[in-house]
Design a protein around this nucleic acid. Structure first.
Length: 118
RNA sequence: CCAGACGGUCGGAUGAUCGCCUGUCACCUGAAAUAAAGAAAAUAGUUACUUGAUUUUAAACACUUUUCUUUAUUUCAGGUGACAGGAGGAAAGUCCGGGCUUCAGGGGAAAAGGGUGCCGGAUAACGUCCGGUUGGGGCAACUCAAAGGAAAGUGCCACAGAAAACAAACUACCCGUAUGGUUAACGUGCGGGAAAAGGUGAAAAGGUGCGGUAAGAGCGCACCGCACCUCCGGCAACGGAGGCGGCAUGGAAAACCCCACCCGAAGCAAAACCGAAUAGGAGCCGCAAAGCGCGUUUCGACGCGCGCCGCUUUUUCCCCGCGAGCGGCUCGGGUUGGUUGCUUGAGGUGUUCGGCAACGAACGUCCUAGAUGAAUGAUCGUCCGCCGCGCAAGCGGUGACAGAACCCGGCUUACAGACCGUCUGGCUUU
């Protein structure tokens, strides 16, 4: 299965977000926080969720942060392992930080957690 | 040209790459329904053949039912592709007013509570808007106003001041008298007049001036203010003129209150439906009835009237209506999800007409987001605007306020900058 054929699916249920957070496995970068859920049966569909709390800013700022993270996930997440669910959490610097920093940080985080697949 | 007043429009532009949501169309796949054709099976019927007759069997025909196959159409779901559309003037605050939905059976009256408050109009309605009145501000364009009633009642008016609304009199003024003194000036006591002057205050019981007086006082007069009456203009708020009174009615209604008018509650997490799951509850207490009369009767009951109880969502009462049980408390169970509501509406826009205007009418024309862990974008260029540095070329930074959530009408608040129109005052030129 090549990376290009993998599909992405967005988490929508509150219970799914809670289960990802309950594993406690995460990686913190300046622009975002990556949470990794408990391993399950590997599949070609990679599931991820996005969160931007009110700490990030007002509604306009939160929308921008969430959209940047969605675009980031679209580009990078097909390389992640299909055996986990993921949640990307926005931070106050997410809307303004450099785009290449976000990309590099997410790749670095996945490699550190040994979830990267070429 | 400068300063200002009012109203309106806009709210970065553009390209490339990669994406999201909705709708329409086309194709593919799957499911369901309907129709047609064909095949098979079953039941009964009719006809023909055979026989003396009957029965049985077989065949043909049409009909009905069921199943299967094929084709067509429709609907739903998924996928692919193409095309179209995709945040605001405030989407915000959630402060008013409505539509819509649900709850309460309908109507009326009173009370309580809340709101509004100069007059007239607009509107579905409003606390909004328009026009006016009155009173402030500004040279002006213009603008601001919680602008009903304080002679219905209760209470309040700090500090200062003699006194804050019943009236009264600290200093000072005047007269009389007694006394001291030198008959005087003047001082002191007592009685009376008066409230002008001083001083306090946000406010001291009409103001200014003249007359008058022992001193004074609307005591008299003039002007101004105020009250009342009459007339005129205006739908009205109110304005004007005349007469008359002789000064009455201090402030505050944003203390209570009075008067007039308006108001049922909760909200799209409303609500309806589908599916799943669970349940079709249990216990206790209270109230009331199972009554009477008449009629019908197949003797099971039924109908009508009266009485009683309950339903009437702030409370009470009345009228109508409905029901056969009703109400209260405690315990237990349930709320995943999907579809609809969901965007065509008091809608936008143009012309004409009516109106000072808000706005209304007629005709034409347009369809313009519909998400639900929540789409409407991400990245990289170029241009534009702004800021900083620099003589300059240029370099660097930055892009106002802010994100639809059922829909409208308003209000309030936030807002970089750009543009347009009308008007006012001043300066210069002709």
């Amino acid at each position: 299965m090549s990376v290009a054929q993998r599909k992405l699916e967005i988490l929508r249920k509150r219970a799914e977000f809670l289960s990802v957070a309950s594993s406690g496995k995460k990686w913190v970068a300046p622009g975002f926080i990556l949470q990794v859920g408990k391993p399950h049966e590997s599949s070609d569909v990679i599931r991820y969720g996005l969160t931007a709390s009110r700490k990030v800013g007002n509604a306009v700022t939160r929308n921008r942060a969430r959209r940047r993270l969605r675009a980031l996930a679209y580009k990078i997440m097909p390389h992640a392992s299909g055996a986990h669910d993921y949640v990307l959490i926005a931070r106050p610097s997410t809307p303004d930080c450099g785009w290449t920093d976000l990309e590099n940080d997410l790749m670095k985080g996945l490699k550190r957690l040994k979830l990267w697949q070429d």
